[in-house]
Amino acid sequence: MIAHLEISTDFEHLIYRESELDAIWSISGFVLKYGPAADRKSLVRLHECAHVAHDLVVDGRPREAAEILDRAYNHLSAQV
């Protein structure tokens, strides 16, 4: 997704990216609400990053969205 965000420019590209970020935000939201309690901090971060990245894509700023996700990915990888 990060790689795709970095090269997305057209209306169509941004729609796909938005739908993927919507899906991540939805899934992480469900897990936070109904899933196991373990590792909530990481999930909260992922959920929040997906939201911020989503709004950046909507605003036509996919590269900044990629940076947000990249930072979150590195942070979560370090936790694991």
């Binding site: 941004l14 729609i15 739908s19 993927e20 919507d22 935000w25 939201g29």
Partner: peptide, 16 residues
């Protein structure tokens, strides 16, 4: 809402 990738057409219509 909690959208997924099957909602692409809906997202595209709203954005347009």
């Amino acid at each position: 809402e909690r959208l997924g990738t099957s909602d692409t057409a809906i997202i595209a219509t709203r954005r347009l």
